[in-house]
Design a protein around this nucleic acid. Sequence first.
DNA 1: GCAAAAGTGTTTAATTTACACCCATGC
DNA 2: GCATGGGTGTAAATTAAACACTTTTGC
Lengths: 254, 254
Amino acid sequence: MRAPKSPRDEGEARFLRDYRPGDFPRPSVTVDLVILTVVDKLLRVLLVQRNEHPFKGRWALPGGFVRVGPNREDQGEDLEAAARRELEEETGLSHENAGRILLTQVGAFGAPLRDPRMRVISVAYVALVRPDLVPLVRAGGDVSHVRWFAAEELPPEGAELAFDHGDIFEAALERMRGDLDRTALAFALVPDTFTIQELRGVHEALRGEALDPGNFRKKFLRMVEEGVIEAARGKRPTASKPASVYRFVTRERV
Amino acid sequence: MRAPKSPRDEGEARFLRDYRPGDFPRPSVTVDLVILTVVDKLLRVLLVQRNEHPFKGRWALPGGFVRVGPNREDQGEDLEAAARRELEEETGLSHENAGRILLTQVGAFGAPLRDPRMRVISVAYVALVRPDLVPLVRAGGDVSHVRWFAAEELPPEGAELAFDHGDIFEAALERMRGDLDRTALAFALVPDTFTIQELRGVHEALRGEALDPGNFRKKFLRMVEEGVIEAARGKRPTASKPASVYRFVTRERV
DNA sequence: GCAAAAGTGTTTAATTTACACCCATGC
DNA sequence: GCATGGGTGTAAATTAAACACTTTTGC
């Protein structure tokens, strides 16, 4: 993302020096995270239980305020940086591990009264957590009010999510489903090396339906031909015959 | 979009009554519009020329501030409402005509220093304008600083767009291309009744490549079988033989 | 008559879908 | 041995891609 840092000419420099922002009301801006993972062919989402008003006791998407700087030279943190910071705080993952998690913006949610305290505009991100990182989530920190929910059992116990987080969650899923076949998103939900069936599990969890193992394999092997995936060393033990493992090649294209 | 309007219990009501927002800096929030149309198989975007600093003289996406209310009972206008208001203001279209234009959110753009005056987070929307409405755009108002540009000739005259509007424009195009085959978006870029070749023109303009007329027709006729489109009365005169016209059936699904 | 685009058809390749079946392993 | 899932193969149906050809209009 380009960010023009310097005035384009002297007139603009003068303008900026003398500029005083108007005194119109401004909204608070937050980031909310739809943290997803797939374990055992089940799509799961990480929710936190609110222990403050409003929506005290309800489950909510983790999130927090975007840090805005005090003046025009220091304007604060980027939206994605805020999302990644919240990701670290809420999951307890190390900076390094959190840095490897794919973040995708879903969009802005800013209906009036979505937060009864004040006008809040939330920028929602999806975070795709590889299953091998899941055991590390909150392993060291306060785990009491943080829980993985199966996507299909939402909303939990008949209680709607806090704020408009139910809408945000639906929008995030919709986006993931649309991108599943067009992007390399699925590879962000499997370990570095993975079996064909592990990848199929991700597709099945997101699409919510079983896929033919033989047919999926064929499509998969076509990806190997195209160089998107390559065979990796070793085998993965399974309930039956050990399976070959593969590696996603152009990881940076995700 | 749900917007919880009332406290969930007495404790929350009390909390809200006594709530005082903190005094943290807040960003300004704007909406920016990527107003697109397709005329003569050419994708066009509506830009405005800035006559104020910063970026004075540069071309920019039309947009403006989201109106935020003064207190928690009156929180101001919805994001999409703000986008539609700006759409009316900048195009000069009537409320009724503007109301028929498809608005789709692209996402939030909030990099620090994207606006040198202050922290501004912009929510970008794409507006798809049917070609029969194009002659009405700015027909009555100030047309001097508003212009349709062919998408392929951007950035104009070697001058980058103002702010990060070049990035926003690219992201909007990318989104439209991805949604073209999955949604009914293309029907928002043709008149109420249209010919096969008019619809093909939309696909060609967005994809940036010519499509085989015969093959496109076949795919099109499959949509007729599925009931997505139906034959309409009348013929459209063309440079040669008059063409049959069709109508999009489930317009509300757009 | 001729250009231009509407409209139709054909052929081939690629892809999708639904199965059947063999094989190696853990228990 | 046998259940389990890995791995392979086949056949039909659908879709995509390339392209030839006929028809109807305006000029």
